[in-house]
Design a protein around this nucleic acid. Structure first.
Length: 256
DNA sequence: ATGGCAATGTTTCATTGA
């Protein structure tokens, strides 16, 4: 079972490129973020033509998440599944695929430490973690994938001294990432890849990609039952190259 | 090579992203 997460930075702007990649990759499950499209304008015919099913939770212009799968998507939910007040931003969707509970998440960026958007990022993470703590995810096949907007460690940052203190890489956000591990989840990528210099996002500006000035902020976290099945993990850097790339590369995980 | 912001709507600039 191959699972990929990708912040596509608009599924419509990326449509041709995305479906070309999908046909070639053949992933079983694809978690998308920043689809930037309302559900009625999602490319449903193209999904079906590619041999996939999908569930989406989107809005126009900003945010938006989706899950594509070859197998049926069951027990689907949108937004926070905690029954409390609805999140005005479409950042979370869940479904069960082949017995694995899959969640696609788009964590708020935070813009600037101390800003209203940073407060929203913290509150959003607190709410997700509170749900995870109550959901007993460590005992079941559970997978949380997406754009976390957090680089967990120094080895995940190309220029740590320059990035330190930013919304993506600071002590508080590193502590948030540790809380995901504390609820029993495992960074599946790091199970298979220990080296530094592997990033999932590069700024469009300032020659970010050619200079490999990147950060690893897109993650696939898994429960112990799935951690035992991890065989391979990789970042698909080829998809950051060429014409009209997303600023994020896909992250792929192969399970037995 | 991999290339010097990009996508969207509020559209000819502002907002957001990270």
């Amino acid at each position: 079972m191959r699972i990929v997460t990708w912040n596509v930075n608009s599924i419509r702007a990326r449509q041709e490129r995305f479906f070309r990649w999908l046909a070639q990759d053949g992933a079983d499950v694809v978690c998308l973020q920043e689809t930037k499209v309302a559900d009625d304008a999602f490319p449903w015919p193209e999904v079906e033509a590619a041999g996939y099913r999908a569930v989406a939770h989107g809005q126009r212009t900003y945010n938006g998440v989706a899950i594509l799968a070859r197998a049926p998507l069951e027990e689907v939910w949108r937004g926070f599944p905690d029954g409390a007040e609805a999140d005005p931003e479409a950042r979370l969707i869940g479904a069960t695929v082949s017995g694995v509970r899959i969640v696609s998440a788009y964590v708020p960026n935070g813009r600037e430490v101390g800003s209203d958007k940073y407060a929203y990022k913290r509150a959003w993470l607190d709410r997700l973690l509170a749900w995870l703590e109550g959901a007993a995810v460590s005992d079941t096949p559970f997978l949380l994938a997406g754009d976390f907007n957090i680089a967990p460690e120094t080895r995940d940052v190309s220029r740590p001294e320059e990035w330190e203190g930013s919304v993506l890489f600071n002590e508080e956000m590193r502590a948030y990432f540790q809380r995901f591990l504390s609820v029993g989840l495992v960074d599946a990528f790091r199970l298979r890849r220990a080296e530094e210099g592997l990033y999932s996002w590069w700024d469009y500006r300032m020659l970010g990609f050619p200079k490999n000035n990147g950060l690893r902020i897109d993650h696939i976290l898994v429960s112990p039952p799935l951690a035992a099945r991890c065989r391979h993990a990789e970042i698909l850097r080829e998809e950051r190259k060429g014409k009209k790339p997303s600023d994020h590369a896909p992250v792929a995980l192969d399970l037995v």
